[in-house]
Amino acid sequence: MIREFSPADVVYLIAAARWTVLLALTAMVGGGLLGLLVAVLRIIPLRPVNWLAIGYVNLIQGTPLLGQLFVFFFGLPLFGLSVEAWTAAALSLSIYASAFFGEIWRGSLQSVSPRQWEAGAALGLTYPQRLFYVILPQAVRISVPPTVGFLVQLVKNTSLTALIGFVELTRASQIITGATFAPLPVYLTAAVIYFAICFSLSQLSRRLERGLHAAR
């Protein structure tokens, strides 16, 4: 039964976008925690651990997210874990995000001049004191705009989970297209919703970049 593309469908799509947002938030939290670990493992003065972290980042950044999604989707059941698309989606997006967050934060930590470490040492601060009171406050300022900028990538990349059958905005659009046979308005509506989310984040990132610079 073919029906018209109606305002009710737009409401359905907006409602489906909450899964896009929820997935991005989950990946942000999961990837953030894991990314913190990656950044720390990248900078501590212990070569084998650095190599391990570099290998991890290269593996994740060197393979397509789509591939990672499918590997988790088909791989998790082999370990007796749930076969739900949500689990595979949340896990692989978190891991994907962790590699990028790890690199962004490592870069921010390393962009603080080494003289700051030396100055802290000269003032008699211990290593943790130097890290928490001198380096981190400066590194966080530097890292905020690119971190928010990466969230745009993350939101856009949640669309790939549609291909393993997780019902978020893109999958919902496919479903509505199947019912209405009106692909153009449906996908354009989806694009507008994505744009609304991502453009707000991009603008926020830009404003933060200017604001954090101006405050210095």
Binding site: S159, T177, L184, L188, F199
Partner: peptide, 23 residues
């Protein structure tokens, strides 16, 4: 630039492949 950078490639692809035939 802003439109393309703030929407997913997958949706852009679907618009071109599934959407354009209707016009």
């Amino acid at each position: 630039v802003e439109t393309i950078r703030n929407t997913p490639l997958l949706v852009q692809l679907f618009i071109v492949y599934f959407g354009l035939p209707s016009i």
